[in-house]
């Protein structure tokens, strides 16, 4: 959290530490550097907070409340305020995170990410009925929001309740940028980044474009076209990326990185 001179700040305590934070920031955003750890699955700095996983819960107390009274809130959505007290690791907080992880372990037994997190909270085996599935999607909606943020809206969450799932209803809208797969906290979206100049994701195959000079893979044809158009239309990809991207577009006629929305590195680990 960088503080600018003009931004108003508020004072709060987080696990007893005095913290000065910019007004309007969410609790989760001000914790880095404090040595406290709040787990989160559906939050991403480049996306609007969503509040789906409920893992980032913390206890708070506002000034003037009775001493015994605390409220459980999701830190990704709760704005800091003057005099606020925050507990990020109390018994109540840990207990509820534990149940959430216990539930997720039953939902996606195949996910190492969830299993590791569960272990950290003392859940080695789920207390609930395991769903028989290899899928590791936890419906955090990050892929949906990321795809929306880059301007494609190819991914949507479908159905409701326990039947909810994500899909790409309109395959034409997908440009094979891999933002979704790279941001997915549980690596639930299978893809092949580069198979002899081809890329596969969401059941669709793309041709890859390579920079002639450097031999660097620039992205799919559709992706490059999308970035070019977006840069032309709006002169930007997303607010923070504007300068960086337009420079790239000018130089190469394409953009490769959507560094703010999603740190798209070429994937390190491929998931099938």
């Amino acid at each position: 959290m960088s503080k600018t001179k003009t931004s108003k700040t508020v004072h709060l305590t987080i696990d007893g530490q005095n913290v000065e934070a910019p007004k309007g920031a969410m609790i989760l955003d001000v914790t880095p550097g404090l040595g406290v750890e709040i787990p989160s699955l559906c939050a991403h700095p480049g996306l609007e907070p969503f509040g789906a996983c409920r893992l980032c819960v913390v206890e708070i107390q506002k000034p003037g409340w009775d001493d015994w009274y605390k409220q459980l809130v999701t830190s990704c959505l709760f704005q800091v305020e003057e005099g606020l007290k925050v507990w990020t690791n109390s018994d109540e907080v840990r207990q509820n995170r534990k149940v959430v992880l216990d539930l997720l372990m039953a939902r996606v037994p195949a996910s190492d990410v969830i299993r590791d997190l569960g272990n950290q909270y003392g859940v080695t085996k789920t207390s609930y009925a395991e769903v028989d599935t290899e899928d590791t999607c936890i419906m955090c909606d990050i892929c949906v929001r990321a795809c929306h943020a880059i301007g494609r809206d190819a991914i949507a969450s479908m159905s409701r309740g326990p039947d909810k799932y994500v899909d790409v209803p309109d395959k034409d809208a997908c440009i094979g940028c891999l933002v979704c797969a790279n941001l997915c906290p549980t690596n639930a979206i299978p893809f092949t980044a580069n198979d002899n100049g081809k890329r596969r994701i969401w059941g669709k195959e793309f041709d890859l474009v390579t920079d002639e000079r450097s031999g660097e893979v620039l992205g799919t044809t559709e992706y490059i076209e999308h970035v070019r158009k977006r840069a032309e239309d709006k002169g930007l990809l997303c607010p923070e990326d504007m300068k960086h991207e337009s420079a790239r577009v000018k130089r190469y006629g394409y953009a490769q990185k959507l560094s703010h929305v999603a740190d798209v590195e070429e994937p390190i680990e491929e998931v099938k």
Partner: peptide, 9 residues
């Protein structure tokens, strides 16, 4: 609606 884990799961 299935949005959040405690209710959905």
């Amino acid at each position: 609606c299935g949005k959040c884990v405690p209710c959905r799961e």
